[in-house]
Amino acid sequence: MEQRALICIGCPMGCPITVTLDNGEILRVEGNSCKRGDTYARKEVTHPTRIVTSTVRLSNASAPVVSVKTAGDIPKEMIFPVMEALKAIRLSGPVRVGDIAAENICGTGVDVLVTKNVT
């Protein structure tokens, strides 16, 4: 049996979580204060994922860049490829929260969304 100590990154509470594994199989998840923590811990010991937030270039608007995020988790090893792909994106004109900046980024199946209203 193996125990892995994690800190949940689901929210700023940062609950300490212990996952008990037997031959890679998850037996127990303890220490989380909510369901998100359980989901996070299971993913973290099998295939860790992250939300990526960044900015993309914007033209014809009141700001030179606009903030974006991946609409959902992407595999951790895809963070840098996604960052590279974001560099190539140019949006134009007014944008609104929720606008799609890129579809299915790097084949992850996850879209990149604008997170700020810019006129």
Binding site: I7, I9, C11, G14, P16
Partner: peptide, 8 residues
Amino acid sequence: GLKRNIVQ
């Protein structure tokens, strides 16, 4: 800082 930020 918050623990979550040290991790991520």
